[in-house]
Nucleic acid binder design. Structure first.
Lengths: 363, 363
DNA sequence: CTGAAAGCGCTTACAG
DNA sequence: CTGAAAGCGCTTACAG
């Protein structure tokens, strides 16, 4: 009956939205006590409330179908208990990228055991700085994780300067702490592996030129080639944009040529997958006629044919770490400083000695 | 200078949070006009504001580093421009599931071209109904998408009854509109395919028993077996929980037995992947000694060895559709009613005639 | 045409 | 110990 009294008090709170919402005021009125008492009872503090009052409040809250309004609360406390995530600008199908998926998985796993939900800023065009800033700084999140933002993105520093707790993965050079992988070491172990197998003619599929991971892997690759007197023709360095299609097209380009490398170091696994597909189309045997090595050690490496040798970087841990770090910042502790995570070579089936002369394999 | 005046007016808005925030009040004070005029100028309506005033407001807003506070706005408008997504209860690593990834991709793609961001409710324990309801009904989202909620989840109906726009994927029987795949047809084409290849002894890997997709696929499978006089021993129906590990264990169980089916219909691809791995360990050739068929047609099907025959269901489109539908509901239109999406058989390499007697293949 | 004021649903000093 | 009141930053009727 009590219930019905309030249920029928239908409020048109906004055009098209007919909620029936009880507020703490309703509870207070019902019980003839003050809203402050209701608030303290509901929150379990900081002021103490006698148990019998607390019980009444809780019962009435339930009867009225009361749900706390977090917008009102956040307006005062400046806390939303939600963490914002800004993915890199990958155009469409971003959730299909293993990098995003692994990062998201790390974040989601971490958030499950925290008190925070995850707000995905999917519409962030980082070239539209002002719009983006209004979006991420509008009070919906307590902190922000930038996943591999483009090199020199002005948004990151602006957000950081605004005062919103901010962390970054896979992109150094910002004021905010950054958690990234040891690309230098990753490239080194990949190349050491190829060289130890006897390769000297090595190509490279480059990722998105706007991303630091891509640039540094390419840079370290070129350094390695030079320092070790290897052969890498300009034609053997192709931008595949970190996606399978790019790897596929790069592969076609390389396989059309008479002069091919015996091994290709790919800036990530996805391009390697595309490359494998192209190789199959051209009847090029892997690893006999071409060794391929990827980067990320994404789970798909265990399923491709042949299984893909890859440099493992702990994307998921990076993201988990970023999440824990942003929470620390929010809770007022000093954040974990920038750090570099180790990479590791996972040898599978796509690399071997260059058993055939690649010239001979052209039909 | 003006800028600095306000920047130095540091406000301690909450313990540990030292933002420097300008409000519309600051703009109004600076320009000696009313907050209403500022508000209308900033929002471009509904009241008209002379262009020169508008310009001054915008300039001052910029100078003061003003950012609109969406919590305050939402408190009044009851709009947050964010859509909530509740994933199924899959325990840990939910983002690694192809189903979640594809769903998320559909949602994210759709949201990019909308005015809505995506709030991921990662902490939703659907058995803790009250906590979960407080979480999703706290005013942070304008609508909610339940991705494949467990059968009979009370939360879904409670949210719907509360009045929050709600849609569901892959789980019928709720008051909210549901968009799901045609499991009956999917099972039928999978089984027709196997039977046409000559299989009569067919097993089934069952998914999560709490999910409708799992239950209905199993049900339709059993119906088909019965109606067509096929052979399926109880031992050939194993629950693999929709995950690769489950498929792997199920495979081991089946391969240990003397009496094996010649084909296995898997409730999803992930279990099929695990099954393939188990088969490899037992030296069982696919498809020669065992045909395997999956469900989902996830992208991995194109990479496994052998490539996996699978029933395609449009997970991504389902999620996109759900997103567009929830927007319609929010904007006051009547939502798209529940609908069933078509399934399609994608034949690859993992199915063939049962060329060997499977008894003989046991060592 | 524009300003003063009420109010969204809360939290939390401030009085009694 | 508890209530009345101020205020978070906005939007939007209501007056002039």
């Amino acid at each position: 009956m009590l219930y019905n009294t309030f249920r029928t008090e239908l409020r048109n709170v906004s055009r098209n939205v007919f909620y029936i919402v009880a507020t703490i005021k309703d509870i207070a009125k019902t019980l003839n006590i003050s809203v402050s008492t209701v608030s303290y009872a509901l929150n379990g503090g900081p002021r103490t409330v006698p148990q019998h009052v607390k019980d009444k409040v809780l019962t009435t809250a339930k009867e009225l179908g009361y749900r706390p309004n977090r917008n009102a609360r956040s307006l005062i406390t400046r806390r939303t208990n939600t963490i914002g995530v800004v993915p890199p600008q990958l155009g469409t199908n971003i959730a299909m990228s293993p990098f995003i998926r692994d990062s998201l998985n790390g974040i989601v796993n971490e958030s499950e055991s925290s008190h925070y939900d995850v707000l995905l800023f999917t519409r962030c065009d980082q070239s539209q700085t002002e719009e983006m800033l209004n979006d991420v700084l509008d009070g919906r999140v307590d902190g922000l994780i930038f996943l591999a933002p483009p090199i020199g993105s002005s948004s990151v520093n602006l957000v950081y300067d605004f005062g919103l707790p901010t962390v970054v993965t896979c992109s150094n050079g910002y004021a905010a702490p950054c958690y990234s992988s040891d690309n230098r070491h990753g490239v080194q172990i990949a190349m050491d592996h190829l060289v130890s197998l006897g390769h000297r003619k090595i190509g490279h599929l480059e990722g998105r030129p706007t991303l630091e991971d891509s640039v540094s892997r390419k840079t370290y690759f070129l350094e390695y080639v030079q320092e070790n007197g290897l052969i890498c023709k300009d034609d053997w360095i192709i931008c595949g944009n970190f996606d399978p299609e790019g790897g596929y097209l790069a592969g076609k380009h390389i396989f059309e040529s008479q002069d091919r490398p015996t091994a290709i170091f790919c800036g990530n696994d996805e391009m390697a997958f595309g490359l494998i597909r192209a190789a199959r189309e051209y009847g090029i045997k892997i690893p006999e006629e071409l060794s391929i090595i990827g980067f990320d050690d994404s789970s798909l490496c265990n399923f491709t044919y042949p299984l893909l040798t890859s440099v493992r970087q702990p994307i998921e841990e990076l993201a988990s770490f970023a999440f824990r770090s942003i929470i620390e910042m929010i809770e007022g502790h000093s954040p974990s400083s920038s750090s570099v995570f180790p990479t590791e070579l996972i040898i599978r089936e796509s690399t071997s000695n260059p058993t055939k002369d690649n010239y001979a394999s052209i039909q």
